[in-house]
Design a protein around this nucleic acid. Structure first.
Lengths: 351, 351
DNA sequence: AGGTACTGTGGGAGCGCTCCCACAAGTGAT
DNA sequence: ATCACTTGTGGGAGCGCTCCCACAGTACCT
C-alpha cells in the first residue's frame, strides 16, 4: 500500500475504524451508533459519540453509497430551461416547500435542469448511474419520456402534475377542477352571465381539468356552455392577448373572463383595456396561480391560489416513503397514490 | 456472499468486471478505456467499447468516488434564502453561464442554498464530508466564515465577488470601480452637475468599489465630492426610496442620481415622481445591473451591465483548473488569481 | 548477441463503509 | 439445571471502482 498509504495518513479524515479504536469498540458498533440503531447500550453509545466528536468524524458518503447502495440524495428535475424556472414563482415556492421538508432529514437535494437535448442526455446518464435515490418531477408534458425512463430504471419518483387521469407515477396535484369551479361560481355569484374561459395548454392535464371545472360549474348552475366562450391559450402573456382578442371578436357581449393563469390574465387585461373595457365594471377578470403578477396588477387580480409550498412538502413525504419501501425489495405497493390538495380563491378588485 | 449476492444478480447493473469478461480483457484495461487513457491499442478499445454498449454499462459513481477520492460534482453555494435567489436575475444569469460551461464536462452541478442557520450547518457537514470536488461561491458578505471553512477543508473554491481587496480565494468579479466611473462620466457628459449616489450595502466590497469609482470620476473631472450627495442603501427597493428621500431633503437641487442597483433605482424613481420631478428632464437616473427592471421601467433606465454569464463561465474555468491542479498534490500555486471583467453602459431614456 | 526502452495488458490491493453471522452474556420459563 | 430467547457486540466479506506493479511483447540501439 505504498501509494495509497500516503493519502490516508493521519492528516486525512478519520475513518470508522479509527473511531472504533478510539472508543474501544468494534467497527460494527460504531456503524450502529452512526446510523441510530437501537441495539446499542447507552454506555457504548456515549463512548462512541465522544470519540466521534473528538476526532471530528464525518462519514464518507462514497463508501456508504457503495456499501449500502444508496446515495442519500434526491433530484428535483425541471424539464425546462433555467430561464422559465426563474421566471415563474411556481418553482420557487415549490422549492421552498421541498427544502423545508427535506431539512428534517439527511437527504441532499439536487436541482437539475433538463431543458435542452444535451441536458436531457446528461440527465439520462445521471439517472442510469443511479446517482440519486429518488426523483421529483415538476411541470412534465403529456408526451415526456422521462417518467417511463424512471420507471424502467426503477427509480422512485413523484410527479407534481399528473400527465393524465391514468398517471402511473405517484403524484401530487392541486385541485384544478375544483379551483376552476371556485372561480366560475364566484363570477356567477357576482351576477356575471357571459363568462369566457382562456385555457392553458391543453396537453397539460391540469389545464384540461380547469376546463372541465369551468364547464361543470356553468352546467350545475343551469347554464348551457357556449363553446365560443372557450378559447385555448398557452400559458403565455401573448397567448392571453390572442385568446382575448378572439373572444371579443366572437362574443363582444361577454362580461367576465376566467383565465387559466395569471400571466394570460395579464395579456387579456391589455386587450380589454385597448378595447376600452373597464375592469371590473364592464368585464370581470379572474386568474389562476395567485402569483406576484396578480397582486401587482392594476386593478389587483382575483386569482385561484394553489398551495404550492404544501405540494412540495407532500411530494417529499411521498418520495421518502417510496424510497423507504423500496429498500428491502418489498412487495411493490400496487395502489397508485395520488394526492390532491384544495385551492383557495383570493378575491381582489378585478371581479 | 449469501446476502449480498441477491442484490448483485444479473438483473442489476453490469460492473467493470462483467464488461471485461465480455470484451475478453482485464479489469484494468476496461478502466483505461472508460477513463480515456491513451495507453490502449485501438483494437482493444473498440472491443471494450462494444462490450460497454452491449451491456449498457454505466460506471458506478460511488465506487469511483471511493477509489479515486473525487466526486465529479461541484456545488454552487448561495448564502441567501431561496427567495432572494429567485428574485434577482443576477443568479439566474450566473447559473446560465455556469451551466453552459459545465455542460462541456462530466461534472455535475449542485445548487445549495445556505440562507438559514440550519442550512448553514447542513452545508458545513456536507462540505466536511467532501461530497463535492469544488465550490462556487456567490454573493458572500465580508464577515462570512464560509471561505475560511473551505480553505481549512482544502476544498478548491472560486468566489464571485471578492470580500475585500485582500481576498485570498481565487475570484471573478466585474469591474465595479470602472462601471461606476462609466455611469458618472456619462452623466457628466450629459451636462449634469449635482450627481448623487445611492450606494449598495457597504459590507459588500463591490458596493464600496462603486463608491470609489463615483468619487474618482468626479474628482478627475475637477469636481469636489459633496458627502451629502452620497447616501447608503441596501440593494432593496425600500432602501432606494429611503435614500432618495434623504438626498432630496439634503440637496433638493440635485440633477442626477447614480443608484448602486436597478432595484434601488426603481425605489428612487418612485420618490422622485412623488416629488413631482421628471425623469430625465429634472433628474437623470442611472442604475446598475441592467436587469429586466431597467428595460421595463418608465422611462427605460440607463444602467451598467455586468457580464454575469461570462463571469459564471470564467468561474467554472478557474475552478476546474484548481481541482485539476490539486489532484496530484502539486505545489499549490501561490499567486492569487483574480479575474476582473469589464462592464458596459447601456444608455436608455432615463439619462 | 545482449542490453535498454517503451507499449499494452492483467490483476492484487485497497478505498471506507454496511450487512450479517457468530457468539458471549443475561433473563426467564420449565 | 436446562432450554429458549433476547440483547449487545466484534469482525469477515463484499460493494465496484482506481491505482500501480509486474510482466509479456516488440523495437531499436550497441
Amino acid at each position: 500500500m505504498a501509494s495509497h498509504g500516503a493519502r490516508g495518513r493521519s492528516g486525512g479524515r478519520p475513518t470508522l475504524e479509527e473511531v472504533a479504536a478510539r472508543a474501544g469498540v468494534g467497527r460494527g458498533t460504531v456503524s450502529r451508533v452512526i446510523n441510530g440503531s437501537p441495539r446499542v447500550s447507552d454506555a457504548t453509545r456515549a463512548a462512541v459519540e465522544a470519540a466521534v466528536a473528538e476526532l471530528g468524524y464525518v462519514p464518507n458518503t462514497a463508501a456508504r453509497a457503495l456499501a449500502a447502495n444508496r446515495t442519500d440524495a434526491i433530484a428535483l428535475v425541471v424539464p425546462e430551461p433555467e430561464t422559465r424556472f426563474f421566471a415563474e414563482p411556481y418553482f420557487s415556492d415549490m422549492l421552498k416547500g421541498v427544502g423545508a421538508e427535506l431539512s428534517e432529514t439527511e437527504m441532499q437535494l439536487l436541482l437539475i435542469f433538463a431543458g435542452s437535448d444535451r441536458e436531457r442526455r446528461r440527465l439520462a446518464q445521471y439517472l442510469a448511474a443511479h446517482r440519486v435515490d429518488g426523483v421529483l418531477l415538476v411541470s412534465v408534458h403529456a408526451d415526456d419520456p422521462l417518467p417511463d425512463l424512471l420507471a424502467q430504471l426503477e427509480i422512485p419518483a413523484v410527479i407534481s402534475g399528473p400527465r393524465s387521469a391514468a398517471e402511473t407515477l405517484t403524484s401530487v396535484d392541486s385541485d384544478n377542477y375544483g379551483g376552476a369551479r371556485q372561480a366560475v361560481e364566484h363570477l356567477l355569484s357576482r351576477g356575471r352571465r357571459e363568462i369566457a374561459h382562456i385555457t392553458g395548454r391543453l396537453d397539460v392535464y391540469g389545464a384540461q381539468r380547469r376546463v372541465d371545472g369551468y364547464r361543470d360549474a356553468l352546467r350545475d348552475a343551469g347554464r348551457t356552455v357556449d363553446e365560443r366562450l372557450i378559447e385555448p391559450g398557452d400559458f403565455t402573456e401573448e397567448g392571453g392577448r390572442r385568446a382575448m382578442a378572439a373572444l371579443l371578436e366572437r362574443r363582444p357581449d361577454l362580461d367576465a373572463v376566467f383565465a387559466g393563469s395569471d400571466v394570460m390574465a395579464a395579456g387579456a387585461r391589455q386587450v380589454l383595456r385597448e378595447a376600452g373595457l373597464r375592469i371590473p365594471d364592464d368585464v370581470a377578470l379572474v386568474g389562476y396561480d395567485d402569483s406576484a403578477i396578480a397582486r401587482h396588477m392594476e386593478p389587483p387580480l382575483t386569482s385561484v391560489r394553489q398551495p404550492i409550498e404544501e405540494m412540495g412538502r407532500r411530494m417529499i413525504d411521498l418520495l421518502l416513503e417510496e424510497i423507504a419501501d423500496r429498500r428491502p425489495a418489498v412487495s411493490r405497493g400496487l395502489e397508485r397514490r395520488q394526492v390532491v390538495l384544495a385551492t383557495e380563491l383570493e378575491e381582489r378588485a378585478s371581479s
